[in-house]
């Protein structure tokens, strides 16, 4: 009884640690600067939409939102299209070479982003593709592919071999077995890879900073620029930008988790 109570309190405490700063940000997005800068935190205030309106009214924000969505969704899509078959092949043929591949793919992520960014900069400049959406999509695809491969391998390994063999006996070839059996059965664990690679590129800052100047700027870059307007940090605007930045990943996670709940609910019925 007491341990249960303690456990629950601990959970509530942890949840609060995570949620309070987020809620605070959300609240601050609707405050005027005077309310924001008081030493005593204000819980009750007249909400203002000034910040949000300001953020949304700026051309650069819309452009960046558009860029971010296009670049990230394409990169995630490419990551899935190329990463999932690769992960499946590695999961189903465990040998020395595939082990090396599995590790090599991730090793890209071990380098500091700057070390990756500079060669990319040179490459895109030489190809005349610097500061284009295409260059960003390809660059980000490398991240999403590696993350997708790394995170999907366990998912595919969990698909019982017998199920695939049954499909082979039922007459399906290897590609059909992948598409009609392995993929749907592993789906639940693959969604995690999808969500994670999206969040990773959506929040990516360093590469975007170095590979874009105006046309292909992404939302994190634009949001960060807002904090550099003069000496008075416009906290309200900054918070509003953060809120805007957080909405797409939250929407995605919400969609995914409802999907997950649905599939789990079916299982437990």
């Amino acid at each position: 009884m007491i341990t249960r109570f303690l456990g629950k309190s601990l959970l509530v405490f942890c949840a609060a640690c995570v949620l309070v700063p987020l809620l605070w940000t959300l609240m601050n997005a609707f405050k005027v600067n005077a309310d924001l800068l008081t030493p005593v935190p204000q819980f009750f205030f007249d909400p203002t939409f000034e910040n949000i309106t300001y953020v949304l009214s700026r051309q650069s924000v819309f452009g960046a939102l558009y860029n971010s969505l296009i670049i990230c969704l394409s990169a995630v899509g490419l990551g899935l299209v190329l990463g999932l078959p690769a992960a499946y092949a590695i999961a189903r043929n465990p040998n020395r070479i595939t082990q090396e591949i599995q590790f090599f793919v991730l090793s890209l992520r071990f380098l500091p982003p700057v070390a990756v960014a500079i060669p990319f900069m040179v490459i895109w400049l030489n190809l005349g593709m610097y500061d284009t959406r295409w260059s960003m999509i390809i660059t980000y695809s490398l991240i999403t592919i590696s993350i997708t491969i790394w995170l999907s391998i366990p998912g595919f390994q969990q698909v019982p071999k017998e199920i695939e063999e049954a499909a082979r006996v039922d007459g399906y070839g290897p590609y059909a077995v992948f598409a009609k059996v392995a993929l749907p059965v592993a789906m639940k664990s693959l969604l995690g890879a999808l969500a994670f690679s999206f969040v990773l590129v959506w929040n990516e800052f360093m590469l975007a900073l170095m590979l874009t100047t105006s046309d292909a700027k992404t939302l994190p870059i634009v949001a960060s620029e807002m904090s550099q307007q003069g000496l008075n940090v416009p906290w309200g605007i900054l918070n509003a930008a953060v809120v805007l930045l957080s909405i797409p990943p939250l929407l995605l996670l919400g969609l995914l988790s409802s999907f997950l709940n649905r599939s789990f609910a079916q299982k437990n019925r």
Binding site: P160, E162, I163, E165, A166, A167, V169, G173, P184, M187
Partner: peptide, 20 residues
């Protein structure tokens, strides 16, 4: 020959039904 060309059907120990 591939399993499908052998005219066989198989029942597995752990049933191996398609869970989805």
């Amino acid at each position: 020959l591939e399993p499908r060309d052998r005219g066989i059907a198989m029942v597995f120990q752990n049933y191996a039904l398609y869970p989805h």
